Simulated assay, not measured.
Amino acid sequence: MSNDLMGTVALVTGASSGIGAATARRLAAEGASVALVARREDRLDEVRRSIEAAGGVARAVAVDITSRAGAQAAVDRTVEAFGRLDTVVNNAGVMLIGPFADAPVGEWERMVDVNVLGLLYVTKAALPHLVRAAEDGPRRTADLVNISSSAGRVARPGTAVYNLTKFGVNGFTEALRQELQAKRVRVSVIEPGNVDTELASHTRDELRAGVEEQIRAIEKLQPEDIADAVAYVVTSSRRVAVNEVFVRAADQSW
């Protein structure tokens, strides 16, 4: 365990699996106390136990961030437990692939709810604490990291609404970065390519085989690869602002 983030507190959404779980473990290994936010309490407890077994500190916070009340509760419970908030990683996301014309409207709504509204709600609730941490925290800076996607840069058939949400995350991140720059709250976006997570499993059964065939030849990134990118961003000296990190699988051309 390092001490780069010792004395700080991080909140990670979507922390029950994949990139979120790997990021929570990595930030805890860097010395942060970590709030694990997601809906699946049993999975959060597994991640919490793994962090504690490695000598870290974590708290499971089972809420649904797609409601404003849930997002506010996630932040409030984090600050109640640990006394402050220095780092937020907005990682929760869902990807529902398929031709736009045939897609159930509920799929669009779910992606907008999680990928956009959940991120906005958590960010809004967290900002006062991040500004305060940058003013008086041990590192005199704070970090907001949004996990976007290569789909925030490259549009492809069958991912129209997912593209909409991730292009939006990229634009929001850059605008907010400019708003908060003077307050030393660093706002960053990380855009992973194809990662070995549960994300593709959200696709409807009749479309999943086609998706899997598209990516069959790609050696996927691992969640830990993206956790490394997050750690690089948030452990950088306060004189450094890493605005954007784009990480593709080496075999991925799009």
Rank of each mutant, 00 (worst) to 15 (best):
S50P: 04
D251Q: 05
D113I: 02
A133Y: 06
V195P: 01
V187W: 06
G56I: 06
D42N: 08
V9P: 02
E46V: 08
I97H: 11
V89P: 00
Q214M: 03
A125I: 09
D225P: 03
D102K: 08
A92Q: 04
I19A: 05
S17G: 00
F246M: 05
R25Y: 03
N194M: 12
H129Q: 15
E198W: 00
A15I: 03
E52P: 08
V116S: 09
T159V: 04
A241C: 10
I190Q: 13
W254K: 01
R39A: 08
A229S: 12
A103Y: 05
R208P: 00
G93L: 07
Q181V: 14
A58Y: 02
I147L: 13
E198I: 00
D113H: 01
G193A: 04
K124E: 14
R132C: 04
V114F: 02
A151R: 03
E179V: 15
P138L: 07
V34A: 13
L199H: 00
L180A: 12
A133F: 00
F82C: 06
L96N: 01
K183G: 09
M111E: 14
Q252T: 01
S201Q: 10
G70V: 02
V105G: 11
V122D: 04
G20D: 06
L27S: 03
V189M: 07
G118D: 12
V122R: 09
T66F: 06
Q214R: 14
Q222A: 14
M111G: 07
A227M: 06
D76G: 04
P99K: 02
V161E: 02
D225T: 05
R68N: 03
G56N: 12
N91H: 03
V233K: 12
T173E: 06
R216H: 14
M95N: 08
